[in-house]
């Protein structure tokens, strides 16, 4: 049995999620840029700071995701469309909303049908967000985990 490359898994999920024709057409017709401020604010709702670890934006996770999306046209366009949609959910852009209003939007997105933009955006940005976030040493403070599996490994005993 084998581990699966994270990148290949993500690309596979993206390809599958973008396959319905109507959805793909909507993505393909999208123009514009990803709103990085809105994406950062959105990620901070998902992964906020706490007493042990920083918020996603403090680690520049939105930049990691935008950089990753440059390799994947459809994902990039989903981010464009998603941040445009977020910016239409209140008075002014999403990143200018109150934290409670931002939270209500994200709560709704989590429960939304994942075959439509808000639900799909929630799932895929969460997947890529936690991947980049928890790959940073600052994010795993408080975990019983070496910074990397090697060179120390985990010699026994284990309880």
């Amino acid at each position: 049995m084998l581990s699966i490359s994270r990148r290949r898994v993500l690309m596979s999920a993206l390809a599958a999620s973008l396959s319905p024709p109507a959805f793909a057409q909507q993505i393909a017709a999208t123009e514009g840029e990803i709103d990085a401020k809105t994406l950062a604010a959105y990620l901070d709702i998902l992964l906020p700071a706490d007493e042990h670890t920083p918020a996603a934006s403090a680690l520049g996770i939105e930049g990691d995701i935008i950089g990753f999306a440059r390799q994947l046209t459809q994902f990039n366009q989903l981010l464009v469309l998603g941040t445009q949609w977020l910016n239409q959910t209140g008075q002014g852009p999403f990143h200018a909303l109150s934290l409670s209003d931002q939270g209500r939007v994200v709560d709704w997105m989590r429960a939304a049908d994942r075959n439509f933009i808000p639900g799909r955006f929630f799932l895929l940005v969460r997947l890529t967000g936690v991947e980049f976030y928890y790959s940073r040493p600052e994010a795993v403070a408080g975990f019983d985990l070496n910074p990397a599996p090697q060179p120390a490994g985990y010699p026994p005993p284990w309880q």
């Binding site: 994270r6 040493p137 990397a148 599996p149 060179p151």
Partner: peptide
């Protein structure tokens, strides 16, 4: 690259 802190992002190299 199992000494890298982002080790979990990579599988066996291609």
């Amino acid at each position: 690259p199992l000494t890298n802190t982002d080790w979990e992002r990579t599988g066996f190299p291609i």
